[in-house]
Nucleic acid binder design. Structure first.
Lengths: 220, 220
DNA sequence: TTCTGATTCAAACAACTGTTTAATTCGTCT
DNA sequence: AGACGAATTAAACAGTTGTTTGAATCAGAA
């Protein structure tokens, strides 16, 4: 029983690895079962044998990715434990940027989570519940504190999206690649994290200042 | 010659309209020729007859969209003519948000331009040259002035992307739809524009302040 | 009207997709 | 060795895709 996985689990693992890489790079629709099996050096029927169908493989890839990424988020939260809100914000952005921008398999898992938002599949609900909601709730608490507003305030919601938008955007993509700027320098991981931190903290401060002078609040 | 367009140009126009809508909603790969022809009440062979092939139709849709959107950008630039940098920035963001968030056909054309960045086709180069480069150059001039830095400075590049990221993000998408917040209020067009303006201007100001105190510049 | 060229149509085409099948190979236990 | 179940394989399957074909239809000129 336990040892039946001599040959078995090995091609299964190869399929999962190849599928993770390809799905992250091109998305569910653009990756064919044949391409996965070619990359995993397996027969075309291997996907159906081990995972039922293509969607079953995708489901398992995404669930594995969600587990790893969720653990990563927990680390990012733990890194700010006991610190004041501003430092918790810095820690969160820094760790997130590291995992998204650095090369390697961790990067791919993050990419899968982002892709599900841009190009949703039937797994969207699962990913939102397990990955995105916890993140946004945590970050919402921090931003609310920094803005001096309750976490469910609309202004907190918008500020949250502003932060999220920046983290996503700086992932090198076709946009930046041909803008005539030196992309390698602009999107340097460390610089980007510090940029987002400084830019966002200033934005929070602007809200704080506006809230302190109610007469100007309408302008915001 | 001139009047041969009785029946001819009409189905051609219907195909272009249907294709524009569908491509904007689902993207090139997810829209079938048959779906376009069904929506345009035309025969399956109509696309190949009028545009050569599917890609020819997509090319024409995107080129038409680029023309309209480019004109729109010119209007946004003209709206800030002669005004100081901060007011030019406000005008640019406001007009952009209007066109992206408001319902209607204008919205779809913008969406096509954004989609080409997320899911590039062979038309990417054309769209970057005709739509994105002019926009980023104009906005780069404004942001450079507001930051007190030359337009080609890396920090200007990052600030540019921060603004762009926010404008893109607030377009309602699956992310926001299930975050447990009241999305209709958070992404209200007018509020979003003012939020992005306030948030970004504060970010610019932070850079300005940091530049004025060189000792702290390394932190940013 | 008759002719001509452009347009439309139903049908079929070839290539690709995910999936299934039935035979074969492999590892493991008796 | 022999037997059994799990895993792999080549081949085929059914459905969808973009595209082509050749006949039918239409509008306008001679």
């Amino acid at each position: 029983m336990t040892t039946r996985g001599g040959r078995d689990r090995r091609t299964r693992k190869r399929l999962l690895d190849a599928a993770t890489r390809l799905f992250a790079e091109r998305g569910l629709k653009y990756v064919t079962v044949r391409a996965i099996c070619r990359a995993a050096r397996a027969n075309v029927a291997a996907v159906n044998y081990h995972f039922g169908d293509k969607m079953g493989l995708y489901r398992e890839v995404l669930e594995d990715a969600a587990s790893v990424v969720t653990k990563m988020t927990a680390e990012a939260i733990a890194a700010g434990e006991g610190l004041p809100a501003e430092e918790r914000f810095r820690a969160y952005v820094r760790i997130n940027c590291q995992h998204i921008f650095r090369a390697g398999p961790k990067n791919r898992l993050q990419q899968l989570m982002h892709r599900e938002l841009q190009e949703p599949t039937e797994m969207l609900d699962t990913i939102i519940e397990r990955v995105w909601k916890p993140r946004f709730e945590y970050l919402g608490g921090i931003v609310g504190e920094l803005l001096g507003l309750p976490p469910d305030d609309d202004r907190v919601g918008r500020a949250l999206l502003s932060v999220h938008a920046q983290i996503v955007m700086f992932k090198p993509s076709p946009v930046q690649l041909r803008m005539g700027r030196n992309v390698e320098r602009i999107v340097d991981p460390a610089d980007v994290a510090e940029h987002i931190i400084a830019f966002s903290l200033a934005g929070f401060e602007a809200y704080r200042a506006a809230a302190a002078v109610p007469a100007a609040a309408g302008r915001l």
